[in-house]
Simulated scan of single mutants.
Amino acid sequence: MARTPQQIFDHHIEALIARDVDELLVDYADDSVLITAAGVAQGTAGIRAAFSQLSAALADAAFEIKSQTYHEDVLLLEWTLDAPAFAVDGVDTFVFGADSIRVQTISQQVRPKG
């Protein structure tokens, strides 16, 4: 049975907070795309590389969801991240497909502390 967009996202966040890249990749397919200002990561191998770099930066960081707005298979997410050396305000867009995240965009503003 296919998961709903909410179920996929809930699993995605749990894996992200746990910094478990293998579990995070369960939510993507071989044709999924992750788009950021740094570039485009395609497929699970590209997305693995992008999140492997990100998970190191998330050490000792507190993640908070500010808002979630769903419309059918699309989610707009506003979030913040608070780490010892920096804070981040971010907005992600998710487009869900058959039991996976088909497209995710990440836009973020990083503010150094101190």
Rank of each mutant, 00 (worst) to 15 (best):
E14Y: 07
L75H: 04
A41M: 09
E78Y: 05
K66N: 07
V95S: 07
V88K: 05
A45G: 08
G114M: 11
E64W: 07
D99Y: 10
I8K: 04
L58G: 13
L16G: 03
H71G: 12
V110E: 00
L24Q: 11
G46P: 07
A57Y: 04
D22W: 00
K66Y: 03
V33W: 07
D82F: 06
A18E: 07
I35Y: 05
A49Q: 06
F9E: 04
A50Y: 09
H12C: 06
S55F: 13
L76T: 10
V88R: 05
H11Q: 06
S107E: 05
T93D: 00
W79V: 11
P5K: 08
V33T: 14
S100T: 12
L54E: 10
L58M: 15
Q6F: 01
F63K: 00
D92W: 04
Y70F: 15
A18S: 13
G90I: 09
A98L: 14
T36W: 03
L58N: 12
A83I: 02
T44N: 11
H11L: 03
R48T: 09
I47F: 13
T105C: 04
R111W: 00
Y28L: 04
D60T: 01
F96K: 11
V88C: 05
L16A: 05
H12L: 04
D30S: 13
T105M: 02
G39N: 03
V21T: 13
Q68G: 03
M1V: 10
Q53A: 13
L81K: 00
W79N: 03
I47W: 06
H11E: 04
R19G: 02
G114Y: 05
A37T: 14
A50I: 05
A49N: 10
H11C: 04
G39C: 06
L75E: 01
D27P: 00
V40S: 06
V33R: 15
D92K: 13
I47H: 02
Q53N: 14
A85R: 00
I17A: 03
T4E: 08
H12R: 04
L24E: 10
I35M: 12
L16T: 13
K113Q: 14
F51N: 14
S67G: 01
M1G: 11
V103A: 03
E14A: 15
D99R: 00
L76H: 02
A83H: 02
I47Y: 11
G43D: 01
V74Y: 00
D89E: 13
Q109L: 12
G97Y: 07
D27G: 08
L34P: 03
Y70D: 01
D92I: 09
